[in-house]
Amino acid sequence: MIRLRNIEKVYEQGVNKTYVLRRVDLDVREGEFVSIMGPSGAGKSTLLSILGLFDSAWTGEYHFWDAAVHRLGKKERAELHKRHIGFVFQSYHLLDHLTVYENLDVPLSYKDIKKAERQAMVADVLDRFQIVGKKDLYPNQLSGGQQQLVAVARAVISNPKLILADEPTGNLHSNQGREIMELFKRLNDEGTTIIQVTHSEQNAQFGHRVVQLADGWVVKE
């Protein structure tokens, strides 16, 4: 599903060059659950943003299924992202002034899906994640775990093939964290490919394999 070859990312400051990623090769098959680990500054989040097609300032080859991402323009990348990728953040990043229902509706609204269809999809997700009772609440009326639950629900609502999760349990206590990881496991079992960045060995256990990064290099796979 994903094939990275010789991916490099450099920050240039005057004459100094800081390498964030060095010659990264990585293959992820459809249905895999991969955990990216490594110390702070190893390049985990950068790799995730390249995988999520947010970052275009890199060199190397990136194939997402049939698409050669490195040859795509901005628009096509955005389209690819919109169609296939869901994102879960450490800080949930729900929109404060929107209700749970409206937060779930946001990604659908960017896909030109008709309103009736969107309503059905939101209702389905609310039901699946058992948060129907919270649909009219605002994020600040929810606990951290509930917020992340909504964030995951938002990430999967448009049935992405790939979910990228950046420290999804970083701000949660252990029970809540475990529930979220179990949720990811279930989603993965249902066929969604998942790549997560994590510091936690425990969370990495939920995945099939671990990719270790250090100073921008893939040191262990």
Partner: peptide, 16 residues
Amino acid sequence: THEIGVRMALGASPRD
């Protein structure tokens, strides 16, 4: 900025 970032991460196009 934050909200816009979230929206873009959720698939909002520049036009949106």
